[in-house]
Simulated assay, not measured.
Amino acid sequence: MLTPLRNAYYLSFPVVMGAVLSNRMATRLSDVEPIHWATPIVLALAVFVIYTVDRLFDVQKAGASTATLTARHRFHRQHAPLLWRVVAVAALLALVLAFFLPTGVIKFGIILGGICAAYVGAVFRLPTRHPALLLKEPLVALLYSVGIWGSVWVQRPVVSGIEITEFAMFIGIAFQNLILFDVMEVREVASQPVFSLASEWGEPRCDLILRWLTFGVVAAGLTICFVTHDRFAQRSALMLALMSLTLYSIQRYPAYFLRNERYRWLGDGVFWMPALVL
């Protein structure tokens, strides 16, 4: 009964929808209206393509070994031929719809898309335990956040300090999400951990980083509530703080959230929380 839902999860549907909802929050915060109808569709397709291609390259790079593959990666390996065809169709559809977008958004998309393609290609070519791969988490957090917020900002002549602060909070949350997942994956496959920041830095250091990220995001959110009278800016800042606190709750109770990959469901689900303020 849960198979369709689990498949949607393996296909990064929560991340894709989270990107669309977060983009909508950034749009309202920046007061960019109206947003072209194709914008959320192209964004969703782009996120799906990037995440799926990255995982398909991961399983291709792993070869015959399955020891360190997560359930999501095993799903991508099992359905790789079909997924490559789906990626091709999604990329073509995104390319066609992109011609309906404003010129500034198209230029922004071309630049960011080129950077993402270079990133995915570099990750695929680097050896399995190359030190540069440790930059994956901060780079993914940055690129994901830039795609969501940058596509809004290119439609504005000026970006306010409040918007920049909430963008920085969002980057912190995205990085917190990825580091948390690394830590939980190390706990899942303790006998043969995946090469990541968590496996190299160690759990105590990662826990400390996650705590400081939570403190920084919450502090920034509360500060925004005191320095602006914009009600939506206040609500969105508090929602970002709650997103970070939700991830912190997973960190606090790892044994509970490791069961049935609960940490992944809730960890990716936090990016749906902006819907509560829209």
Rank of each mutant, 00 (worst) to 15 (best):
245 L>S: 12
252 R>E: 08
121 G>F: 08
266 L>E: 02
265 W>A: 11
139 L>E: 02
139 L>M: 10
99 F>I: 11
163 E>T: 10
205 R>E: 02
238 L>N: 10
238 L>H: 05
115 I>N: 00
22 S>F: 09
124 F>A: 14
51 Y>P: 02
120 V>W: 00
91 A>I: 00
58 D>F: 08
253 Y>I: 14
33 E>F: 12
128 T>P: 00
73 H>F: 00
187 R>K: 09
122 A>G: 06
217 V>T: 09
116 C>T: 15
152 V>Q: 11
198 A>M: 01
163 E>Y: 02
110 I>Q: 03
206 C>W: 02
188 E>I: 01
17 M>G: 07
81 P>L: 04
211 R>E: 08
130 H>M: 09
142 L>D: 01
262 R>M: 12
276 L>F: 14
269 G>K: 04
101 L>P: 08
26 A>F: 15
94 A>V: 01
179 I>A: 06
140 V>I: 15
155 Q>F: 10
80 A>C: 03
45 L>C: 08
91 A>P: 09
191 S>E: 14
122 A>Q: 12
37 W>E: 01
1 M>F: 10
200 E>A: 07
141 A>C: 08
269 G>P: 01
229 H>F: 05
24 R>H: 14
192 Q>R: 11
80 A>L: 09
156 R>Q: 12
146 V>P: 00
18 G>T: 03
117 A>Q: 05
184 M>I: 09
246 T>Q: 03
126 L>S: 04
192 Q>E: 10
163 E>A: 13
250 I>A: 01
42 V>S: 05
123 V>F: 11
83 L>E: 12
